[in-house]
Design a protein around this nucleic acid. Structure first.
Lengths: 252, 252
DNA sequence: CCGATTTTGTTCTCACGTTCACAAGCTCCT
DNA sequence: AGGAGCTTGTGAACGTGAGAACAAAATCGG
């Protein structure tokens, strides 16, 4: 066996300007840290300073930044404004991205009022819901529009990012409509696994899952003596029979 | 050079009952998929069925489940109810966890109304805010209480999980108060890096960061021509000879 | 009872991510 | 000018995760 490998074992596969996914996920954190430093009037920061502000260790931060290029100065550190611009450009937030939010329930309301969007390269161009009683409602300086207008809005405003804040039930259908209308990136808050065609990016935010991960670790902490080994095959009746389906709560 | 490695390279180091973090993060997804199957009246499911429902591949699912024990039957599959209980027990959601939410703005409102909590092993015992004009407000069947009552509530209800939905400014102070009061797991929605002592778990949910990650990939997509997508093409290393490296820069 | 069939549990290998450690490079001081 | 002192950028070791592949059980039909 052992087919001849033509590549060296530890090669990081950094083809051209391909930035590792783990690094991409941290760039926005660095961007925020840099903005905070800038607001404090700090003009230069070392990798140690930045790493502390971003909550990572300095070696990781330096390696992450090295994928973008050599923007620091040895013996000195990084120019805060310059690095901030370079990261913003790499992420793509130097331009504005049009966003639609679908599902104006509690969470949709909260996002519509979230001021962090407009100031960071994202512009909410429409709030959509299929419920007639919601259409027309004013939220901030926007008005809820009918979901049927989706295609028209996406085409007119060149929307490429959609946010789904509906309940689980209609989420897949909404997703399909978004994709068909031309949206190629989706942020999903509905507690359901969405399927999308290749070429469409999807990210999921799930409050319930986050809490469950915390619970797992919490259980570990409280009493190592917990987790009694369970017999092979008990009746398995009863116990958690009350969990209703995944539907629930967030949307209209 | 090249000192001989005396240890085997791929040793998984599965000591005791330590479940890999990546697996822990997927268990809640499996739990939800199992609940959905159960609600559909399906009593038995193969790893293939489950994997499809959970949006992962079957090999990964089987490996994940193998960390919990051998709960399947070869040639048959998994008993949905039994496996669901085992996962719920492993995560710790067969018991109830008391949760406090601090910061009753738009997002705090949304979470307070989120029905997904109560039905999944989590019980919101208090909504807290420091603003006098919010204290006393009714949300669902709860009333907003003063943040000053935190310590009393945590002690009385044995609260171990806290959710922070304040703005960035007061988040660290709120966090410190939570930890001092005895909370050992924190879910943070504020756009800031919180520091906590060892022994306290913290998870972060950040809408702005998720959007920025999408924007990065979106920027990549629009730079290339439409990919001639073929179902089986895992390679990402396409030729990307675009983007002039660093343009001008910010003459800071 | 035996073989065919199905599906799990596990092993093996490769890819990805993190951390260490240090040479390269910059500034400042003498 | 030249060395001392920092700090970046990166090569290499190490650890974790993913996926293919297969042997080990379990059922079913004859």
């Amino acid at each position: 066996m052992t087919p001849a490998r033509s590549r060296r074992p530890g090669a990081p596969t950094r083809t051209e300007r391909g930035i590792p996914e783990a690094t991409v996920a941290r760039l926005p954190v660095y961007l925020r840290a840099l903005t905070a430093l800038s607001d404090s009037g700090i003009a230069t920061a070392s990798s140690e300073d930045l790493a502390t502000a971003a909550g990572v260790n300095s070696a990781k931060l330096r390696k992450d930044l090295s994928y973008l290029g050599s923007y620091g100065t040895r013996g000195v550190g990084y120019d805060v404004e310059y690095l901030r611009y370079q990261i913003a450009r790499e992420i793509g937030v130097t331009q504005d991205w049009a966003v639609v939010i679908v599902g104006i329930g509690n969470l949709g309301h909260a996002l519509a009022n979230y001021s962090g969007f407009g100031t960071r390269g994202f512009r909410i161009v429409a709030l959509l819901d299929a419920a007639p009683e919601l259409v027309g409602e004013r939220i901030g300086d926007m008005v809820v529009r009918d979901f049927a207008e989706l295609e028209e809005i996406v085409a007119a405003d060149r929307v490429s990012i959609g946010v789904i804040t509906t309940p689980a039930g209609p989420a897949q259908e909404v997703c399909d409509r978004l994709v068909a209308a031309g949206v190629t990136s989706i942020l999903n808050f509905a507690p359901v696994v969405l399927s999308v065609p290749a070429g469409v990016d999807i990210r999921k935010v799930d409050l319930s899952i986050e809490l469950q991960i915390l619970a797992y670790h919490e259980q570990r902490k409280s009493g190592e003596a917990a987790l009694p080994e369970v017999p092979e095959l008990p009746a398995m009746n009863g116990v958690v029979t009350d969990l209703p389906s995944v539907g629930g709560g967030v949307g209209a």
